[in-house]
């Protein structure tokens, strides 16, 4: 009986020690949702550091970090939000050549996506001039980087004014994809990372919007300055920027940073 109690106590004590170690926390942009989890598993295997990731819109994560959310590293979907944190003295890019500029870790690709069972011909630039295109889903251009890219591409194609009244704005890029996948919008300008997820790859087809039509969707990382795990943050960034992981990013729809 006493032995059992002792074992139980020891068990509880070791559990306690396990809990006391604060986890390494990453705030990650929503478009990394389908990309990052396997990389985190590999990282833990390679370096023995357990990472917990939270996926949300970059704007929401920025507001959370400004208000003291306990994140150690921020992987944004753009350069603007992490830059804002650097300027506010809340984050830094220590260790990189220019510590006041977020570390670019990847570039995003904008695609035009539609369901395979759509009445419209397969996605192409011409689709944007098709009168049968009644609803085009985009992410919110005021804050979602892919939304900004979508508006820039439509403007450069001189289709923005014509399509303006037919745009439906989604909260983020995955909701834009949802609008199309559920059959409520005819097509959407979404991220390649979304289009390559098994679900959307099965139900739809995409067309890569030529890169000269929109400013590059550069995605930046910063270390949250109040972190107590700076060493782990550097280890993760080194790992994330290694050529092996960057090649893996490419398969998921992100262009390597270098």
């Amino acid at each position: 009986m006493r032995k059992k109690t002792l074992t139980l106590l020891l068990g509880l004590a070791s559990l306690q020690i396990g809990l006391a170690q604060t986890p390494f926390r990453i705030a990650a942009a929503a478009d990394l949702g389908p990309v990052l989890p396997p990389i985190l598993v590999q990282f833990e295997k390679a370096k023995g550091i357990h990472v917990e990731a939270t996926y949300q819109a970059s704007a929401a994560l920025t507001a959370q970090i400004q208000n003291g959310a306990p994140f150690d590293l921020f992987l944004s979907a753009d350069m603007g939000y992490p830059k804002r944190l650097i300027d506010a003295g809340l984050a830094d890019a220590a260790g990189s050549p220019d510590s006041s500029t977020p570390i670019m870790y990847a570039k995003g690709t904008l695609v035009l996506w539609a369901r395979k069972d759509s009445k419209l011909p397969p996605p192409s630039i011409e689709m944007l001039s098709d009168p049968a295109l009644q609803r085009l889903a985009i992410a919110n251009p005021e804050r979602a980087p892919y939304g900004r890219a979508a508006v820039a591409a439509l403007t450069n194609l001189q289709r923005y004014d014509a399509l303006k009244s037919r745009l439906v704005t989604a909260e983020n890029i995955s909701q834009a994809a949802q609008f199309v996948d559920s059959g409520n919008a005819d097509a959407g300008l979404i991220s390649l990372t979304s289009a390559l997820t098994p679900r959307l790859a099965g139900s739809g087809r995409y067309f890569v919007i030529p890169r000269n039509l929109y400013p590059p969707i550069e995605q930046g990382a910063v270390i949250v300055s109040r972190t107590t795990q700076r060493e782990a943050a550097h280890q993760f960034l080194d790992y994330f920027l290694s050529s092996a992981v960057q090649a893996q990013l490419e398969k998921s729809g992100l262009t390597p940073a270098r």
Binding site: Q178, F179, S182, G183, N184
Partner: peptide, 15 residues
């Protein structure tokens, strides 16, 4: 809202 989006979408008879 998501259920309604799917239910009222053009992929269902209801929609």
């Amino acid at each position: 809202g998501f259920f309604l989006l799917v239910l009222l979408g053009m992929r269902t008879a209801v929609g």
